[in-house]
Design a protein around this nucleic acid. Structure first.
Lengths: 225, 225
DNA sequence: CGTAAAAGATAGTAATACTATCATTTATAA
DNA sequence: TTATAAATGATAGTATTACTATCTTTTACG
């Protein structure tokens, strides 16, 4: 069977819903490609418009500015990942197995999910690693947070924190450990590939070593004192 | 006694050494204030020049661009912190006590160090939290790394990793744990103050809770299996 | 088929991120 | 002390970025 996945995104994330038009989907598709290739700093609406074959003004009808567009695709990614997590941990009773699955999903290069035709999740995963934290490391974070732009990220974090509590109801830092897992899944990957001396797996460049590190970190942390 | 601290910084970090002239020191001093106040994105050389009472061209003689200036002040901070670590863990034999001291230094709001007159370390610490990772989360990271711009950060990380190994020579991930401590000392602080639901200490906003979390994380991780 | 919404085309502006040039001041060494 | 080089100041200019505005044409759809 062929299923087309769509997520209902927070309306504050855009001016016009990009999922609902050809141009909108092109904006998402090409912006993912361009941000991945050139990095967020070098990415501009003008270049994007040229690539797509539309005009700058056309892009501005969908997104207020490029930072908002970044927040959109990052929020989209977290929504998609939460869905993946739900899907893949469904029917698993043991919270420890669930946690291992989540760590794997966070730390592993994802494959392009064919049920979302205009989004290449593997590129998106790379974008999250390098650009993800830039969405909130700004002076506008409080305002953006009030608009609930980071809700998908916070939901995932809360979800993981709950599973941690299932493993050990007495553990004192479930939410901080959850955000640590998420951030470190990405930072260790970035370091491994770019600043290898900050990790213990610079030579192999093997994501399984990151998983081993995170599992060691998590399960020792939540084991009873 | 009054001591004026100066660090010999990597020459690739600047075009002209800002420590060696009045204008250079003003650039450092005011850029720290402005980046702290407005955030790195809104910070420009033009505004900085106006604030100082010089011209844009004047700033460009010291730093290639604002990103380089950010790398400079961040590298300066890590150099200063490594010095603090060395100073404060001097004569401590027990690596566990050393590690605790380092976690405290990383996670606590620092006080302005009066032996560095043109640098306000407490502002700088806030800048590192919000802007620090932007120094390396770029497409230029490999090039910048070759120029050794991140050496102070990597040195500190290596230093911490060594102490971790002193605690437990069999621990498998000393460097990754070290970079995790450093990054999480900052991210948990940022989350606590801006996205509190990602942490377990959003209500109290107490840095001691972050320290407790990091100590729990670290000492459980390095305890023998 | 008519109308409203979306997209295209074009233009324009203020700010940013620089580079260049030349005059003036300041440090310094012969 | 003077010459002279280095640093700074003053001014100008350019390409690009980050938008906003307006008007026309196309497309969607009830």
């Amino acid at each position: 069977m062929e299923i087309e996945l769509q997520f209902k995104m927070n309306e504050k994330l855009f001016l016009r819903n990009p999922e609902q038009s050809e141009l909108g989907r092109k904006i998402i598709m090409y912006s993912i490609q361009m941000i991945h290739k050139q990095g967020f700093e070098a990415f501009t609406f003008k270049k994007l418009a040229m690539e797509i074959g539309t005009t700058e003004a056309g892009i501005y009808r969908y997104f207020e500015n490029k930072h908002r567009l970044l927040i959109y695709i990052v929020a989209w990614y977290w929504t998609w990942l939460e869905y993946q997590v739900a899907y893949r941990t469904n029917n698993i009773g043991d919270p420890i197995i669930k946690l291992k699955m989540i760590i794997k999903l966070l730390a592993t290069t994802v494959e392009d999910d064919l049920s979302t035709r205009h989004v290449d999740e593997s590129l998106l995963h790379q974008i999250i690693i390098t650009e993800g934290s830039k969405t909130y490391l700004t002076k506008r974070v409080t305002e953006d947070n009030k608009d609930r732009l980071f809700k998908p990220y916070k939901d995932l974090c809360g979800h993981i924190a709950n599973i941690i509590l299932e493993c050990n109801p007495d553990y004192r830092f479930p939410k901080s450990l959850a955000s640590t897992i998420i951030e470190m899944a990405h930072f260790q990957n970035f370091f491994m590939n770019n600043l290898p001396s900050l990790t213990d797996f610079g030579h192999e460049k093997d994501e399984n070593r990151i998983i081993a590190f995170l599992e060691d970190l998590v399960f020792k942390s939540i084991s009873a004192d």
